[in-house]
């Protein structure tokens, strides 16, 4: 899609906005609808849009696939690791009270922040990884032939 100037300009503007929105959804989930999963999807959409308009190679330069694959695993490790941390502090698995025994509700906030981050990281990674995997496959015939 190299000749679509308008698409390219608009995409460049949009990608930043989408990523910003993803962060908003990620960290504002306590107060309004949304959370790690939705944020992850939106974040991934930014990269997918970039990939669709500028081509897969460009997208892979920005967000190389080895990094994507590391993120896929990292998110689960963050989530499960939060539970292990609370366990090491002498509490039950995923008992966020462990992170601030004096004010359990503050501990809860930290815990929720951490696990939502984990969800967001994994979902971003997985969605982008799936997109890369699909887009890398050779199509049976060219678009023009349909």
């Amino acid at each position: 899609m190299h000749h679509h100037l308008i698409l390219r300009v608009v995409t460049k503007m949009l990608v930043g906005a989408i990523i910003l929105f993803a962060f908003y959804v990620q960290f504002h989930g306590d107060f309004s609808p949304g959370g790690g999963f939705q944020a992850g999807v939106i974040m991934a959409v930014a990269f997918i849009l970039y990939g669709i308009v500028f081509g897969l190679n460009k997208a892979e330069q920005v967000f190389p696939s080895w990094l994507v694959h590391k993120l896929v695993a990292l998110g689960v490790l963050i989530y499960a690791g939060t539970g292990v941390a609370s366990m090491l502090l002498g509490y039950n698995y995923l008992d966020y009270g462990a992170f601030n025994p004096q004010h359990p509700s503050h501990g809860q906030h930290w815990g929720i922040l951490a696990v939502e981050l984990g969800v967001g990281v994994t979902v971003t990674g997985v969605m982008v990884a799936i997109y890369y995997a699909f887009a890398n496959r050779p199509p049976p015939m060219k678009d023009e032939d349909w």
């Binding site: 999963f37 799936i130 995997a133 699909f134 496959r137 049976p140």
Partner: peptide, 20 residues
Amino acid sequence: IVVGIATTSLALALIIRIRE
């Protein structure tokens, strides 16, 4: 819903392989 999209993406990947 999340489980559903996970299943869908896996199924679509399988379909692509089957077509090939």
